[in-house]
């Protein structure tokens, strides 16, 4: 009889410890999810909000992604929009020029298969899926050069698909923008 009591006592202790740990686990997960939610809302770091489409068969003929419209464009409110295309196995423009300390919107898509790009030394990282438009708000802190590899396997030339991003001084960019509507590194 005594061992019977010990057994149920032990079982109660085990159940109590277990419940405590389960509660702690739920709290840990809750805090992590809460943190991500808070930062997402507070600092507005949310993924792209809506789904936009672009037909890769006619990209070069009309619309936002015709060749003459690619590159960096100064907007009336002082922000900059960068339009780019990824294709096997390069980006257009191959070298993107942007001002530092300026709100920038990347708008990009793919002309053939799935690509992606990340800009080393920053947390700018996104996918280019043919048929869809990627829209990404970014901001560069300081002038400098970055490499911009394609980060999604896109075929046997994938290893050669590296673009560049040149971040320049805000005033220098404004001077460039006064002379030309769409800018790349070669301007």
């Amino acid at each position: 009889m005594a061992s019977e009591t010990d057994h149920s006592l032990g079982e109660a202790v085990a159940a109590r410890i277990e419940r405590r740990w389960a509660t702690l686990s739920i709290v840990i997960v809750g805090v992590l999810v809460g943190m991500a939610t808070y930062i997402g809302i507070h600092q507005a770091t949310m993924p792209q909000g809506r789904v936009e489409t672009a037909d890769p068969k006619t990209l070069h003929l009309s619309g936002e992604f015709v060749e003459s419209n690619l590159g960096s464009e100064m907007q009336a409110d002082g922000s900059v929009t960068v339009r780019a295309i990824g294709q096997q196995y390069s980006f257009t423009p191959q070298c993107i020029v942007v001002p530092a300390e300026t709100p920038i919107t990347f708008r990009a898509t793919s002309a053939d298969v799935v690509h992606g790009f990340l800009i080393e030394g920053t947390n700018i990282n996104t996918m280019l899926v043919p048929g869809y438009v990627t829209d990404l708000p970014v901001r560069f802190k300081a002038p400098g050069d970055h490499v911009m590899p394609c980060q999604e396997f896109c075929g046997i030339g994938h290893q050669g698909m590296w673009g560049k991003v040149k971040v320049i001084d805000k005033a220098a960019f404004r001077d460039m923008a006064a002379a030309k509507r769409r800018l790349t590194c070669v301007d």
Binding site: S25, I26, I28, V29, L32, V33, A36, T37, G40, M46, P47, Q48, G49, R50, V51, E52, T109, G116, N125, T126, M127, L128, V129, G131, Y132, V133, T134, D135
Partner: peptide, 23 residues
Amino acid sequence: FADPQVGAGFKFMHSVFTGLVAL
């Protein structure tokens, strides 16, 4: 998360459930 063909709402939902799977 970095794809353009799914909106932010469902990405958030999936993010929360990903947290749960740590349980």
